[in-house]
Amino acid sequence: MKAVEVKHLYFRYSREWILEDVSLELEDKEFLAIIGPNGGGKTTFLRILLGFLKPTKGEVKIYNKPPNKASYLIGYVPQYTTFSTDIPIVVEDIVLQGRLRKGKFFYTKEDKKIAYEKMEILGILHLKDKKIKNLSGGERQKVLIARALSVEPKILIMDEPTSAIDIKGQNEILNLIESLELTRIVVSHDVKILFRKVDKIAYINKRAIIHEAPQLNIPKDRHFCEVELIDFLKGEECGI
């Protein structure tokens, strides 16, 4: 079974297409990096995968289900800048939210065990009683990842997981994402992600160009020019 299947996807709010004829396939446990310019439709694409937006045309399947029926399989890490931190809530409360389910009102011991496990993996267990407001950007990001992992998802979808974090924190988080045995989709404006063990790269700017990453031979050991790299990814000569 394919983890993600997108066939001839089109999306628009009004007249102009935001996404045009996007097709993509992802196998179970594969790692996809999505890059592209701001306003190019990356976030819209992500929101369609999450089931928050419906495609205007075309088909999207997550593990053979339409996205809005697959939400229980998805662990989502939103851009951490998008919501407020000034509410009385501690790390443990947030990570436990991954265990919320329809028809279930209280957390069980099992839920707590899972949440603790994920905090341990992220190295934030010692912060569990800290107010979110008092954490650094990197720590907050780890809290959101721990929350997404608490869902025990088959697929992890992350929106700019390394923005607003220092270089050391970025590497830590990328190492972690790399090591997870899950299907992963990461949207990033930072080309550093391309030097990771990604299986596929999607360059989205209204249309999508998909690269099978291992064929790219991106030089990992010498200096590179970011602009050239992006131009290369935009080019269709190695698209599939």
């Binding site: 939103p78 407020s84 809530i89 409360d93 939210q97």
Partner: peptide, 22 residues
């Protein structure tokens, strides 16, 4: 008492709650 966890999740991140099927 019954909706504490949901209300808290709603105040923090309503989209995540939606994704949990609520």
């Amino acid at each position: 008492v019954f909706l504490y966890n949901r209300f808290l999740a709603m105040s923090y991140d309503i989209e995540f709650l939606r994704l949990r099927g609520i």
